[in-house]
């Protein structure tokens, strides 16, 4: 009997550890599935936040290790791994990244925890030149954004 209890306990613990995040924080894949299949940036933003109106301020976005052709357009040598850095001082609830170069628009979405310092860095793939947009949903319910135009020398999705 004891052994059986032990078994069921371990199994339960295993089951818990397999789905670690969904019980604690919002999994946007499950709660907002339409975001991830949207093809247009605006559609994805609409699906994510319910509106596409954003305020262009308070968010910093930088594509690192790329050369700047002009003040606004950056060129990445390798579209397979473009480093993106973004940060915000806004009291944020959700942060999401979109781009309009790939077949689908959504890249990732963070649900901000109370321990978060909102400075992130990721590497993304882009098949074509396009625009990257970071949207921060503040705890005040407003959307703040930053955009960066990107050229890619080599497409990253054909690999």
């Amino acid at each position: 009997m004891q052994r059986r209890q032990f078994l069921s306990l371990t199994l339960g613990a295993l089951a818990l550890s397999v789905v670690p995040a969904s019980v604690r924080a919002e999994d946007f894949r499950k709660s907002k599935p339409t975001v991830w299949s949207a093809h247009k940036m605006d559609d994805a933003i609409q699906a994510m936040f319910g509106t596409t109106t954003t305020i262009e301020k308070g968010v910093k976005l930088k594509a690192a290790n790329v050369s700047f052709d002009s003040a606004t357009v950056a060129t990445a040598a390798n579209g397979g791994a473009i480093p993106l850095e973004f940060s915000t001082k806004i009291d944020a609830k959700t942060i999401a990244v979109f781009q309009d170069a790939n077949p689908e628009a959504a890249v990732c979405a963070y649900s901000v925890t109370k321990y978060s310092v909102n400075e992130y860095s990721i590497k993304i793939k882009m098949g074509n030149p396009g625009t990257v947009k970071v949207i921060v949903e503040g705890t005040d319910g407003k959307l703040y954004s930053a955009t960066q135009k990107l050229n890619v020398a080599k497409g990253g999705c054909e690999g």
Binding site: E104, V107, C108, Y120, S121, I122, I124, K125
Partner: peptide, 25 residues
């Protein structure tokens, strides 16, 4: 035991993706 980071991602992260983040507490 505290959740400090949570991210839903799509296929457009690079191969073997590197993520950097910060937290305090």
């Amino acid at each position: 035991g505290e959740n400090v980071f949570d991210m839903s991602t799509s296929q457009f992260l690079s191969k073997n993706p590197i993520v950097k983040f910060k937290f305090k507490g």
